[in-house]
Design a protein around this nucleic acid. Structure first.
Lengths: 222, 222
DNA sequence: TGTACATCAGTGAACGCGCGTTCACTGATGTAC
DNA sequence: TGTACATCAGTGAACGCGCGTTCACTGATGTAC
């Protein structure tokens, strides 16, 4: 009989055929389990059943592999937000629907961070100076056009369209909203809120997301 | 003549006298330059002019040393916030003064993150599971009572006292405010906002801090 | 006031570790003629 | 249709690296009597 051993992928042909993807997903699994520091080129090669050297045919080195994993993680985050958006029905009232969408992507963001802390950290991990510099120069605007960001921008536009948010608040609104959600996620994962019991944590998340909306939608107090 | 060589501290006596502090500050300097990953026990010992083994008289190991550095970094952060608070005069109008204080500590937080990214990251660095667990259990409340946190809480109390913030918004207000500021700092340092030109960045900071205040102080929109 | 002795704070050599990366190489594939 | 040859995608051994940590040790200090 011919059992395929779990975990290892025994190759049949000399050429793998899809080594770049295989390595990336092995490395992504490591990031899922242990965050960006856990991504080890040699072990990814081992898991795929290939010599470490073979990886250099597809990646310029360790940093390049991590970069691929980072992009995977960003896509997963966006997918989680999208899934949260699709999890509840659209509402007929346009204002309510705009609010629903805004909340859903916020909840999706936080949920992903809590469910996949390793990937979430990897999505926002920092590279060595050189790589970061190159990456920064690559994008003209100075603001990353990640899918997650585009979803946020769209949700904010909708808040303006339906008249909930004043247009003069639109600029920098994504920075504000993203900062709040991101900071909440970080404090919950690594920071002083990591010890919060589950029920308090869920309350804090709900309240914080409400406050973000208030900050965007509100009138200035008396 | 008897020049003391810069960088190295040539010991005169066999016993150092203050080795724990000397190692901590050498290690803190490394964190300042390169973040938490740059803290290397052996190099700290080298800088102080002592064998690596000597460090084990004062720290249980590498993790313990990093922990000491982390506490230093947290104190530095609080000091920076306090300094920003003292940088401008108190205002006579209580409401204006409450707002001034709130803004000052927010600005202090962000300024510190931008001025000392290595220390800022170290202040919020995560330990291995075991250490984090122990730390979490150590604090009963589940919320760290760092000096920075206490300053924030006090500023929020003051906003309520002077009548700017409704008391029913007080709970979880620190989580909201801290999340926003922290997220902004992280996105500016490591994230998609790291490539923002200086002028746009300063604008974004100002706007975001204003929005935080709005979220706390506002009425719900129509 | 001296002295024996426990304790504290250092030393220096050595260990294993696993990593990323390079080297010279071989096996497989595809294409020009 | 066959063949020569360039190119692509792997191999396996080896390298240096610097780390954290342990070991058996020695020098300095302080305290009881």
């Amino acid at each position: 009989m011919n059992f395929v051993r779990a975990g290892k992928t025994p190759r049949t042909s000399y050429h793998h055929g899809d080594l770049a993807n295989a390595l990336t997903s092995a490395a992504t699994q490591m990031a899922r389990d242990g965050g960006p520091e856990a991504v080890v080129l040699r072990e990814a090669a081992r898991k795929v059943g290939v010599s470490a050297t073979a990886a250099y045919r597809h990646f310029s080195g360790h940093g390049d592999l991590i970069h691929a994993v980072k992009e995977c993680a960003q896509e997963d985050l966006a997918a989680a937000m999208q899934a949260e958006l699709s999890a509840t029905r659209p509402l007929s009232d346009p204002k309510a629907e705009a609010v629903r969408r805004f909340n859903a992507i916020g909840v999706g963001y936080i949920r992903f961070a809590l469910a996949e802390p390793g990937l979430f950290r990897t999505a926002f991990t920092r590279f060595d100076r050189a790589a970061a510099q190159a990456e920064a120069e690559a994008k003209a605007t100075g603001m990353a056009m990640s899918p997650a960001f585009l979803m946020l921008a769209e949700a904010l536009d909708r808040l303006v369209e339906v008249g909930l948010m004043s247009p003069d608040r639109r600029p920098d609104a994504e920075i504000f909203a993203w900062s709040c959600a991101h900071g909440l996620a970080m404090l919950l994962l690594d920071g002083p809120l990591s010890a919060l019991p589950d029920d308090l944590r869920d309350n804090a998340i709900r309240h914080t997301l409400n406050r973000i909306l208030d900050g965007l939608v509100s009138h200035r107090g008396p």
